[in-house]
Amino acid sequence: MKHNLILRVIAKYLFPVIALFAFYVQFHGDYGPGGGFQAGVILSVAFILYTLVFGLDTAEQVLSPGVLRILACTGVLLYAGTGVVTMLFGGNFLDYDLLALNPIEGQHIGIMLIELGVGVTVSAIMLVIFFAFAGRERS
């Protein structure tokens, strides 16, 4: 990809579009195909495109591995925290009905939080794995 001007310009155009599609898949899991896992993969794929075109060093300046590790933990904490909060309200683990006064509303909020946690964790872990593989030969 040495001096590949076309790839660089097109990647700049495509990155926001792919990232927006990832967010769309994230938040429309209950209207169409999608959900947290797929959205996390698409978002990490957008960053992988950026890394492929602009190099690992540039990508690590934008998203440092430390931030990625914190994000991965945040996702798991969000997932587990939702479950623990429902237990504090007196229900079972991940008993969404208790999150709001109305059980339907509560299930909506609960699913959305869970999916958000899954999405954050998946995209962060995918990027951690990709950075680890890509940086393996970098002395």
Partner: peptide
């Protein structure tokens, strides 16, 4: 629209890789 941005880019990258 997406195919019309990405497919010439992929073809160009492929031709460029083969030429280099």
């Amino acid at each position: 629209i997406f195919l019309f941005f990405s497919s010439p880019t992929a073809t160009h990258a492929l031709a460029n890789a083969a030429l280099l």
